[in-house]
Amino acid sequence: MTASNQTGAQPLIELQGITKVYGTGQAAMHALCGVDLCINEGEFIAVMGPSGSGKSTCMNILGCLDTSSAGSYKFKNIEVNRLSRNQRTRLRRFYLGFVFQGFNLLSRTTALENVELPLIYRGTPARKRHTQALRALETVGLKGWESHTPAELSGGQQQRVAIARAVVTEPEILFADEPTGNLDSARSHEIMDLLTGLNRDRGVTVVMVTHEPDMAAYANRIVHFLDGLVASDKANGKDTL
């Protein structure tokens, strides 16, 4: 936990002994076997590790999209595992942003409407919602593409819409599970620049899964997963101490 001791402040997220078991009995599959992890505000973390090591499972638990089998997950010192379904929804709605490898945009729905969606659930008034969504799309470099549907956009553009949707609510932390997994190298670097910008300029904490060292290089801390455990966790050489 070298990198987590940089600041004396309360960590944003604290995982302790998080396990996740899929199935029961003979077929039980231990995807996470006791993960400990601290995430501080303002960090840009890259999560790496071989396929099947539990990265996605851990991200889904962090993003409150899934629940752990055992262990403690504290978000801002609140025990998430004790929250009700609706309280966890509220966490997603107001504090967390999530970017999926497969984009998960609503099909046949314009980029603008996709980005507006989280604001609708937040109850943002129409006019404000509209300007915020437009600004978010502009931030990800999609000015002029607002009325295009996912089918009319390239993979890179779709991922940028997804990022715009995740950040339009100005979340405290952004989780991205292999955001560049489906993109070619040039598009991938654009996405990384975008995430780096959000982290540096807006102070958004970013946790990103990737298996490409090129992309991990953008982060200031790299966590390695192996067989459902954190195998190593160190600061990225470029900007530590």
Partner: peptide, 10 residues
Amino acid sequence: GIRLAIGAFE
């Protein structure tokens, strides 16, 4: 799933 993920209540 998408709606729930981005913060819609059930």
